[in-house]
Each structure stands twice: as C-alpha cells, then as structure tokens.
Design a protein around this nucleic acid. Structure first.
Lengths: 333, 333
DNA sequence: ATGAAAGCGCTAACAT
DNA sequence: ATGTTAGCGCTTTCAT
C-alpha cells in the first residue's frame, strides 16, 4: 500500500480510503489508485485489516477423525455437507477454514477460535462427543454442530429429523408388506438412536416390536456392515427387509445380500439414509431418506452467525423426505 | 497478551517469549505464564503474529465451479482429494482455506494469494482453464493444479498417469475378449484426452482402431452419461464393453445398461476410473483404475511448498493401478 | 479532499 | 532473565 501511495503521489491514508471506496476521495483519484492497484496485482492485506478492525470473516469447519481407528472421514454424505457449507459461507462473504481434528482432543477446535483465526466453529458430526462439545460451548467458543438434539446441551445442533426419518423408512417397508426389518447402525450415536426410535415407533404402530435379533449394530463403516450382515445371514435369522442408517451402509448391505444369493428387492427390500448422489445410480436404485444437504449448509451457517452475535440459538431439526426407488418392492403381506 | 502480562506482573515481551518457549525465560516463569494462558483460554493471535513475522501457514484449496451449469462439484473423487489435502496439510502444520471459485473468473484465486490470506493455491481440476492457469502463474501466484501435463504450461501439475490408466483399462478389456469398447468421457478435458490416447494405444497394440461410433462424449455428469449411453444403445451400435472416465460415469453406465436389458458383465463389461470407495460396493463391484488419492494430497502439497520457495517444480505424474473386480468378465474372443 | 499520527497484537533487536 | 521500543500493514481520528 505504501508503494501505491508513493507511485500515486499521495499518502497511505488516501490509498486506504480510495480502495475502500470512501466518498471523501475524489472519484478521479479513486480510479487512478484502483487502476494502479490492479496493475500491481495488489490486494489489501486481510490480516492487517482484520487486526486493525478487530473483525474477521473466517469460519472454521471441523471434521473430527477417529485416531484410534485411523479412520478419515470419507463418507460422501459428510463431504457433501462440506461442499454445502462452502457454498453457504461463500454466499455470505465468509471464508472457510477446513480442519481435521482428533476426535479425542476437540480442544484444538477451541484454538481456532481463541487464536482469532475464526469467529466460530461448525463441527460436522456429533458422534459420541456430547460432553466435549458441551465443554467447548461452556468455554464460550461459538460452535454449531451437525447432529441431533440431546438433553442438556449447551451447544446448538442442526440436523435432519432423525425420528421422522426412521419412521418414514420403516413405515414404507411395513406398507410394502415387510414384517421382519433388520436395523443396521450404531445406536450409541445420538442420531442413530433417534432413527432407531422412529423405527420402533413405526413398528409399534403396526402392532410389532423391535426384535433384538434383527439389530446389526455397526458404525458408519461399510466393512463392518458387510461383516455384520454376513453374520446375521449365516445365523439363519429370517428377515424380509433392511433399514440401513446411511447409504454407504445400505450399499454394503445390498452387496452382501447379492453375494449371498438374496436378490434385492425380490427377496429383501432395502432402505438407506442420506440420499447421496450415488443412491440414484445404484443397482437397483436405492430407496432412501433424503437429508436436505443444501439447506443443511445454510442453516448451519445461519445458526453459527447468530451464535457469534451472542444469541441463544435453539437446535434445529430439518425435514427429511422418503425417496422411493427400486430397492423396495411390494410383496404379499 | 497484555492481560496475561499484567496478571503475571511481567512485560508483554516476556509473555511472548515464554509462550514461544524461549530459553531466555526462566522455566519457572514460563510455566507460570503457560498456566495462566491455559486458564484464560488464551491463544496467540495468529494474524498479529503472521503480520509481524511476515509469515503465513495457510494454503488455499480452490474448487472451481461452473457457473453456467450451476454445477457444484460433488464428484466423490474430488471431495476425496480435498480430504487427502486436509490430511497432508495438517501433517505439515498448514491450515487449509477452502474456496469455491467461479471457473470463469479464476482471478479470484489470485486474490487469495495477493491479499496474504494464503501462501499459495492448490487448484483441484484443470478442466478447460489451461490459459487462465497460465496467466495466474505468469502473475507469480504460487499455484499447483491437479491435472495433467500440457504443452507450454507455466504452472505445475500433479496428476495420475492418464495415458497409462487408459491403456490399463483398455488392455484389460481386450485381454478378456472385448473388441468393441465404448469410450465415455469428454476428450476436450486434458485428462480425458490422455486417457483416450491410452485407449487408442491399447487398441492399436491389438491391431484395432478407435471407432468414432463408439465414443460417448460427455462431461463428468451422471445424467449426461445416462443420456449418452441410452442414445448409443438406441442407435443399435454393437459393443461389448465400456470404458468410463470416472466411477460416477461408470455407475450411470451400469445403471443404464441394466435398465435396457444388458446385464453387466455377462453382456457388457465395464471399467471405471478413480476407484472411489463406492466402486468396491457397487453391484457388480466395479473394475476400475485406481488413482492414488492419499499420495495425491501429499504430492500436491509438496509441490506447492517447493513452488512457494521459488523452485521450478516440474509436473508430476503418479502411478495408477488397475483394480479388477466383477464388472469385467472373461468372454470368448 | 488529503495528510499526520496513533494503535490493532505481536516479536525481536537492543538495552539493562 | 527481563524490559523498552520499534514496526509488521492497515484504518481512522483529528488536523489542515
């Protein structure tokens, strides 16, 4: 900026004002300076500006990763959320700082805020870190989490309506004549627990109860889903449908069923969750519960910005929708 | 920092030194100050530090998006690269600023550098922006691109070996008895052009020539691939295999073949490209050319850091590998 | 309409 | 071993 001032024969103050479009500076000078800046590929130094103005237009987006399992989040659904956040933040003029953070040490998320790098944190996935998240919030880190509402939470969550999602999927299967529906997912995770509740509710509405034999507890990991389904089938338990808690799991389930000679949907119906892009191209195309990804980004960002302004933002649950495709078939009851 | 200095009864300089682990400060004081900082949730202000030190530990990662088609990049492969970059950058102590940028106006990528927000730019996907990228490089923006080597390029590319990939896929199909192999992809894109060269080379080695009738030109978009394949089939052209330039395209191709009564692999073999997670769970599991995603992140980051240091980094082509699964079948020649 | 000067939070000579 | 001071690049009050 000093360079420009010298070249333009004015003071840095004038350059600063000109580049910020101040009306105080004559239009002529303003344009001359703008031109000069362009030809020099000059852009205002954002750090210095922020420092002086005590402002900041960066939001940290954090993807926890599990150090134990060395598992890097690669679920397309979460990556899609990242994309959606990138859009929503760009639209509102914010920059996005993306970090992977050790799930056991979410404190480093606080660092992103305390060090002034970001005005707040959006964390993708609640997992089992409810307590850690509460601690972060208690330490006044503005934080919003993609997940589900928990009792006594100090942080704001935004997430799909998991109970409704579980209900939609299960009721659909029941209406199509299924009676023994396998549940694939890890009910230790809050979101999955809610989906399980929806599953149980829908069964109850049909006068049925959730059968523990039909539970395949597994994290969001295709390999574990394959293993779990294989064990289930080998155990000889009868079932006519599967509700999987993510499309990735559903994909693994369908593959396993196919391998073990149970055609989908003729022999077993399958419903997934998320409606990632792939679900519509799978074979057969997957019936699934669509989460509103686009909206998710917008709502997460809105909630964070409100939190930053000091508002107490209440958790938000977004509507989900059943997308019926070919993986669920009508069958005689 | 001033607060801490006051509370500790020392000067800010001492606090600064203490927090940076200077040996000049007595261990006792250092620990007292560290404790104080912890209890106050204090972290050094990174902007101020960077400003003072004229340093910066942020790298911009840019995903161009096509404004015309309003298409937001959602291809799992590119998102996986983002994940891989996040890991590689974290490992090296860099932060990642993720931006979506209008593909027609890549200049805004220069802004990320000129404004001091990032020390350089990693751009995911070369698309048709060779000239724009050259301009960026000419303007001295440190930039590395995931893509393929072009004549007279001023910027550094890192990418899979596309010619080899095309060859591997095609030769495999030929060896399994296929003779009329459809090519699905947009040869206007440099990477796809190279894969097409590999395809042609492999055919030539078998005494065959690429048949223009067997080309389904389409961008990385599942819908267009479906439309293109449908047209091809309806035109009545005979073919016994398909080489699709991404797994997403292959997925769409398999679905279309299935719908139109051409079972994979019995009637038609299919090879994809990328080896995204899904490829191994598809039905049937997809034979595909694996790109080294993990390595990609590392190499991109290495190349950028070298570029930042002023080195002239030559383009790098990473080895690819054929992963044979069930979508390609032995057939009688 | 423009300039001079102070200060954002930090670090590194240069004292002591 | 610690304090004083100047300055990173910018904005803004206060002068002119």
């Amino acid at each position: 900026m000093a360079d420009i001032a010298r070249l333009a024969g004015v003071s840095v103050a004038t350059v600063s004002r000109a580049l910020n479009g101040s009306e105080l500076i004559s239009k002529e000078t303003r344009e001359r300076i703008a031109e000069l800046a362009r030809s020099l590929d000059y852009s205002i130094n954002v750090s210095a500006k922020n420092l002086r103005l005590k402002q900041n237009h960066t939001v940290a987006v954090v993807i926890p990763y599990d150090k134990a399992s060395r598992q890097h989040v690669s679920d397309p659904f979460f990556l899609a959320i990242v994309g959606s956040l990138a859009d929503a933040l760009t639209d509102r003029g914010f920059d996005m700082l993306l970090s992977r953070v050790d799930a056991d040490n979410l404190d480093s998320a606080a660092h992103l805020y305390n060090s002034g790098m970001a005005i707040g944190v959006i964390l993708i996935g609640q997992w089992r870190h409810h307590d850690q998240l509460n601690q972060l919030a208690a330490r006044r880190v503005p934080i919003v989490v993609w997940g589900t509402q928990m009792p006594q939470q100090l942080y704001c969550t935004v997430g799909g309506d998991n109970v409704a999602g579980g209900q939609l999927a299960t009721r659909h299967l029941l209406e199509r004549g299924a009676r023994r529906i396998v549940f694939v997912g890890d009910p230790q995770l809050p979101e999955v627990a809610h989906r399980f509740k929806g599953y149980s509710d829908a069964l109850a509405a049909f006068g049925l109860a959730a059968d523990p034999l039909l539970a395949v507890p597994c994290p969001f990991d295709a390999n574990e889903a394959r293993a779990g389904m294989t064990r289930l089938i080998e155990s000889g338990v009868e079932f006519d449908a599967v509700f999987a808690c993510s499309d990735v799991l559903a994909s693994a389930v369908m593959q396993t069923l196919h391998l073990l000679g149970k055609p989908v949907p003729q022999s077993v119906s399958v419903v997934g969750y998320d409606d990632i892009e792939w679900a519509s191209h799978s074979n057969p195309p997957l019936t699934t519960v669509r989460q509103p990804i686009r909206q998710a980004g917008v709502e997460l960002v809105d909630a964070l910005l409100l939190t930053v302004e000091g508002a107490a933002v209440s958790p938000r649950s977004l509507p989900v929708e059943l997308i019926v495709r070919d993986s669920t078939l009508h069958r005689a009851p």
